[in-house]
């Protein structure tokens, strides 16, 4: 997993450097340092360092001490968080938060139905009052206008 993550970083660093060398010029038309100067430095350095770390990892192939059970809840939480991002776009701040909390608490805080229902309703209401009324901040609008 660690190695896979490093390869993702390497791919990102190579792509970044590629754009820096192909699309961005080192010098500007006036002969000053151009927009590509700093990205090229950063890109080359990032690629070199990432390769160094990958080589180190390949040399030192110790099995990763990773318990699969520790991943279950964190993956669930991530998936639910991504679902929340989608829900926000569709239903707007308040309703999406109610649905998200109801889903997440059902999964994470099992069996405590009453507590979960109360929290799923009161917490979004509190946050709505804080952001929308007290701080006059933006809350995500719903895609369906009748929900706004």
């Amino acid at each position: 997993m660690r190695l896979a993550f490093m390869f993702v970083v390497l791919a990102g660093a190579i792509f970044y450097s590629y754009v820096a060398f192909v699309d961005l010029s080192f010098l500007s038309r006036t002969g000053r340092l151009g927009p590509g100067f700093f990205p090229r430095l950063v890109g080359v350095f990032a690629v070199a360092m990432t390769i160094w770390v990958i080589v180190d990892l390949l040399r030192d192939q110790r099995p990763e001490e990773d318990d699969a059970s520790s991943w279950v809840d964190v993956v669930k939480l991530m998936v639910l968080a991504l679902a929340y991002a989608v829900l926000l776009r569709l239903f707007g701040g308040f309703i999406a938060t109610v649905i998200y909390l109801a889903m997440t608490l059902t999964v994470m805080n099992r069996g405590k139905y009453l507590q979960n229902v109360i929290l799923s309703l009161t917490f979004p209401a509190g946050v709505y009052l804080l952001f929308d009324k007290l701080l006059n901040a933006n809350m995500p609008p719903a895609l369906f206008s009748f929900l706004n």
Binding site: L77, L80, Y84, G93, Y100, T104, F123, V127, F131
Partner: peptide, 9 residues
């Protein structure tokens, strides 16, 4: 989950 809500909003 409550912290996620605060971070998001």
């Amino acid at each position: 989950p409550c912290v996620i809500v605060i971070c998001t909003l």
